[in-house]
Nucleic acid binder design. Structure first.
Lengths: 223, 223
DNA sequence: GTCTATATGGGGATAGAC
DNA sequence: GTCTATCCCCATATAGAC
């Protein structure tokens, strides 16, 4: 208290340590999963001793949940349909670009979510309702596009999930991509190429091929 | 030796135990990953004691590698482009159906592979060359389709990887699908619906939209 | 805040009785 | 083949000196 009148230096040092811990924990949890990760390895990656780590965190489980929340928050913030756009091409392109960029930039954070889902998703119990709610908004817009004949009739919810799956792939299976396609880490050109291929696949995939001259069409999907 | 002249009963009992162990290990490894899984839990799931388990297996690592090989073998056998078919629609539909069916029927086995990739894929070192070889065959056929104008120009390798990603999704994220879409476990109707949606998305996604009346087209993808 | 030392529990694996 | 008991190591977490 007394030796920290500015309230700056100590706090900054503490937060830098916490950042190191977070980065280390993200790497460790995303690789080994919650059960496979060890506080020992996290401490080592963060450049501190194990006892020191436990001085900064409440426990392994609390640290894990904190990071899980972080992914969910970022996704909730960034990965949305842009409401200022209206045409399917623009909305979907933007969405794909955002989600893919996150997969490229923060693959480990993305993988924590995947690892948790693989483990049964017990730590996501509170998250599913919110996620489903989130998808409903997108679903409604897509339904509108179908009614307006802007895209072909399809199962809107599955369509969203498929886009999510395709973009998530580049985080979860980065190792596979690297081996089967070649390295593309910081290469902007390769990233743009992938974004383009995914976007085209999706946009073509929902296009109406031979739209009957001008008549309303119904959605055939009944799921 | 002497009390087993038929060579049957004992062997059968042994193999039944081994099957139980395999099933238990698949469940455990797919949930927790290699590091997170414990022989304790595997034994418990198999209905035997831990010491008993170690009588049947060479070690945790050997058991894990055995199961990994199992997935790779099944994929190598089942998930191929059918050479008796030739049209893109038929080949891709069949491929998607096979891969999706495996995701539905053996999700845990599929997830072991995913978990291993998430962990860095160190146990797959020998597998990548074979997998890449496998993809090259498909790639050549797709290139042919492009030259023949049967599908639009696209990056063939990424296209294959995207189909793989979409079908793998239903194994890895089964929990997510269940929460956001509803249960679809043994429901044949729902399975067929999903197969249909994925197939249509892919087939439309690679269709040529406004093919110029009749002229060869070049492949623009240079990756 | 940071260290060494340690408490306590669980991990993989084996010995040896039955 | 199956059990109990055990070895030895590593896990999470804390105590307490500095």
């Amino acid at each position: 208290m007394m030796n920290n009148e500015t309230g700056g230096k100590v706090r900054v040092a503490r937060e830098r340590t916490l950042e190191n811990i977070h980065a280390a924990a993200i790497a460790e949890f995303s690789e080994k999963g919650f059960q496979g990760a060890t506080t020992q390895a996290i401490a080592q990656r963060a450049g501190i001793k194990k006892a020191q780590l436990h001085y900064y965190i409440a426990g392994k489980e609390e640290l894990y949940e904190e990071l899980l929340q972080k992914v969910l928050k970022v996704w909730g913030d960034i990965i949305q349909f842009d409401p200022t756009l209206s045409e399917p091409e623009a909305v979907l392109s933007r969405y794909i670009r955002n989600k893919l960029s996150f997969s490229f930039d923060q693959p480990e954070l993305s993988r924590i979510f995947t690892s948790e889902v693989l483990s049964g998703g017990h730590y996501l119990q509170k998250y599913w309702p919110q996620a489903t709610q989130n998808i409903v908004g997108k679903e409604n817009l897509i339904h509108q596009w179908i009614v307006e004949g802007k895209i072909r009739p399809l199962d809107a919810r599955l369509f969203i999930m498929h886009i999510w799956a395709l973009t998530q792939y580049y985080a979860d299976f980065a190792v596979q991509v690297k081996h089967m396609y070649g390295n593309f880490g910081g290469d902007t050109q390769a990233r743009e190429h992938i974004i383009g291929e995914v976007t085209t696949l999706i946009l073509n995939g929902c296009k109406d091929f031979a739209p009957p001259p001008s008549q309303g069409r119904e959605q055939t999907s009944d799921f």
